[in-house]
């Protein structure tokens, strides 16, 4: 409990510092928001074009895919708000500049991965949330408390998976220094999570829901909210990914022991 509070306070401090960083670089807001809007639009337009030619993609109709995209956007925004540092991990590991991470108390995973809070990405978060809200309003069935709980649960699943995947991919960098493996893995997994995993063949789909749980970024949360899977299935998936996450974190910490810093 004390540890949790400590990390929450740290998160608050990272956020504060993130805001300070930005106040010195205001142009960034504009470029960031413009580019990300373009990114959202490309996703939306791609699906709209496809739905101009068909009614269903792997069993998902147009309103459902819009919800799917909502989760994709939000989970991406979460990544950009909190986990942007993971992008630099490979380089920093290669340059041997992680010495201080070794020396300081606290969870190195938390202190490293959450250190770069991005304020402008919060605007993306707002846009993404807006889209998700709009997409949900296009679905049959009225608003309910149970629905809200389901929504929060789905979001938590998506964000947790994001963190787990970010950490998982950087482990590859420990094995193969400067291989860019984590960034390539990130790009590939992003590409895989761009579409409902139901488009893939069965075996591959199973991989994406189990060991590389890309499906839990957007497909599973959307399926949960849309009732495409039952709450029980949702519980099972969530439990598995929670355990997987703990395993990944432990693995990362073990790998970090092998870190050799650069020359001094």
């Amino acid at each position: 409990m004390g540890a949790l509070l400590h990390h929450l306070r740290l998160a608050r401090e990272f956020a504060r510092v993130g805001v300070i960083r930005k106040s010195q670089f205001r142009v960034e807001f504009l470029t960031q928001v413009v580019m990300d809007t373009a990114w959202y639009l490309v996703h939306i337009v791609t699906f709209e074009i496809l739905y101009g030619h068909t009614d269903s993609i792997a069993g998902w109709d147009r309103p459902q895919v819009r919800v799917f995209l909502g989760f994709l956007f939000l989970s991406d925004a979460f990544w950009m708000i909190w986990l942007g540092q993971s992008w630099h991990f490979g380089r920093e590991l290669k340059d041997g500049v992680l010495d201080s991470l070794r020396l300081r108390p606290g969870s190195p995973i938390f202190v490293y991965f959450f250190q770069r809070f991005s304020l402008e990405a919060c605007i993306n978060g707002l846009m993404a949330a807006g889209w998700l809200g709009w997409a949900l309003s296009g679905i049959e069935g009225s608003f309910s408390v149970g629905g809200l709980v389901l929504l929060l649960w789905a979001l938590a699943l998506s964000f947790w998976t994001r963190t787990v995947l970010s950490v998982l991919f950087t482990i590859a960098e420990f094995r193969a220094i400067n291989s860019d493996l984590s960034n390539v893995a990130w790009e590939v997994s992003m590409t895989l999570s761009d579409r409902p995993v139901d488009v893939f063949p069965l075996r591959f789909r199973q991989l994406l829901t189990s060991f590389i749980p890309v499906a839990a970024l957007s497909t599973l949360p959307a399926a949960l909210v849309l009732g495409r899977i039952t709450p029980l299935e949702g519980v099972l998936h969530s439990a598995w990914i929670f355990v997987l996450g703990l395993g990944v974190f432990a693995w990362w910490k073990r790998s970090f022991r092998g870190y050799t810093s650069a020359l001094g």
Binding site: V184, V188, L192
Partner: peptide
Amino acid sequence: AGFVVRELMRGMWRPVVMIFV
């Protein structure tokens, strides 16, 4: 390892995924 990953693997996944779609 970087050579294999970077040069062989990257930059072709989007169209490959679209084939499944």
